[in-house]
Design a protein around this nucleic acid. Structure first.
Lengths: 322, 322
DNA sequence: TTGTAGGCGTTATCAG
DNA sequence: CTGATAACGCCTACAA
């Protein structure tokens, strides 16, 4: 690939002059400008961004760290982030932590080795003082997306509040028993549970892990064998809700009559399901936009301002499953 | 971020010595090695990959160009590619062409500006002599994924053959009318159509575009209003199949009795649908593996060998929708 | 075993 | 308006 120095030689000018031309600086004689441009075009010159950023300028690279791009929610998020970053001339190195805290850390160091100008991370750990600290002593600005992290710039929806919204909706729909499928410590569950308590259903909530499909299936079979109230099921995300719906179908549990199912993330296929999946929608586009903009801002003001913790509104998307 | 030169100053040695230590080269006095390592650890030294690659060595960056990560197929593909690349110490810059040929070209030049060691591309254009040429005169190795491109390294499944498999399956299932939803020029359609012709259904195949949902809905309504044979519908991808299923449900067309639907890509949510979506599965993991390995190989042998055109087997995944 | 010198492709500074 | 020159962080000779 041709370099400025080579163009300089071909055009019989000095290399800095070539630099001036290619960067569109003023104060270059028109004829020289033309000569250089012609030569650059002819050889399809491309800037060497790496060499450029050696001078202390920006790399124009963003590190984007998600737990799993194959989850449509993160796929959508990555897409929006890429589109948003592109507006500012940024490209994105994508890292997949695979829900692995160890790899999350590794990728953070890889991102630094590439001298990315900043990192957008959807951190795995929900409540991580540890994560905050490891991020804070980093010399690269980091914005957390989807999760609140105290003392770190972050853009997120309030999971507590979302859980409460779900609880309220399910109570209104007349469900009398409740099930949360996901991690017991999650903020969604906390909000769900506490709102149900306020509604007088405090002792009718249970929680079970989602990880093992067979186990989950067995659990639901037992649950619905005993005659009981109509059950509102809230899952940690839509993928999990899909599995639940599929299990309920196998068990012959009618949805939404006997069981209501509400997911989280409102992935795009939800509306095409049968029954359509009710879900909590996060404003992905807005999150991406705000997160990128905050990150770029932070690059210029590394320490100055206090962390911005931006809570965005979640929205209930009610379809046939509740 | 601390540099080798600074460590050198702090440890009272020369910068190349620091380089030797940090790169684990032999012939360094143990005590100096310790001193340097201690200092590096203390200040959390990280290599500057960019500076490294200025010397002509590799950037350890791969450009990955897809049309739309938010399509689960490409999301899965990106994920597998990332995992595979990581094994060789490579990171991935992700580009989203958004099915836009113009942006595809732009991203190719951006990739070059970053001096990526190679590019994996799922090209938009199905039959592009133009694309081949633009890629061939690139100074960076490119491997096409998912599409065959003559004269360019590529890893793909044979869409013609896949289309034929679908035709055969649908004929066996007793459908007597056929519909392809997608671009008329696509290889899938060609294979579908020609196989149907061989089966004596040559004049019972139609094709309609998928782009406009309302239009598609109107088309299907008209189609199913007239009493006709049972119809086998083959869609260009699973996302499209989802929309079709949803429209058929609205129209009250029973699936698979009156209409059979088969998608393409076998995205993971397909099995959770109701009815479960029949589809053509592409071996994503294998494709990623082969494509990355081919790309790395090509880096070491830029021109030597002829292009590898690797056709991988597609597989019919039959569920309740056919 | 260690240090010095040069270069990778740029940009910035300063002199002419 | 243009060209030397130094610098960015690192590596690879080569010299001591």
């Amino acid at each position: 690939m041709i370099t400025m120095t080579e163009i300089a030689r071909l055009a019989h000018v000095s290399q800095p002059t070539v630099s001036r031309v290619l960067n569109g600086k003023p104060n270059v004689a028109p004829e020289i400008r033309e000569r250089v441009l012609a030569c650059a075009r002819e050889h399809d010159y491309q800037f060497n961004v790496l060499a450029k950023s050696l001078q202390g300028s920006r790399t124009q690279l963003l590190g984007v760290l998600v737990s799993d791009v194959s989850n449509s929610f993160f796929a959508d998020l990555s897409k929006q982030i890429e589109a948003e970053a592109r507006k500012y001339g940024y490209s994105m190195i994508l890292f997949n932590s695979d829900y692995n805290v160890q790899r999350e850390r590794e990728y953070l160091t890889v991102a630094r080795q590439y001298r990315v100008d900043g990192v957008l991370a959807a951190p795995v750990q929900e409540r991580g003082a540890e994560w905050r600290e490891s991020v804070q002593k980093l010399d690269i600005p980091v914005v957390a997306v989807t999760q609140r992290v105290e003392g770190v710039d972050c853009v997120y929806v309030d999971h507590m509040e979302a859980g409460a919204m779900v609880a309220k909706h399910m109570a209104e729909r007349g469900y009398g028993r409740f099930l949360y499928i996901g991690e017991e410590q999650s903020a969604k569950y906390a909000g769900f549970r506490s709102a149900l308590a306020d509604l007088g259903h405090g002792d009718r909530v249970e929680c079970t892990a989602s990880s093992d499909s067979r186990q989950l299936s067995a659990f639901l079979e037992t649950w619905f064998r005993r005659p009981s109230y109509r059950t509102g099921i809230f899952t940690e995300n839509d993928l999990c809700a899909l599995r639940v719906l599929s299990i309920l179908r196998e068990l012959g549990v009618p949805v939404p009559r006997r069981a209501g199912v509400m997911g989280f993330d409102n992935i795009s296929v939800g509306r095409y399901l049968n029954p359509g999946l009710s879900s909590v929608s996060q404003p992905i586009g807005l999150m991406a936009e705000q997160a990128v903009s905050r990150l770029l801002h932070r690059m210029d003001h590394p320490m100055g301002e206090p962390a911005l913790e931006l809570a965005l509104p979640a929205e209930l998307v009610v379809r046939e499953s509740t």
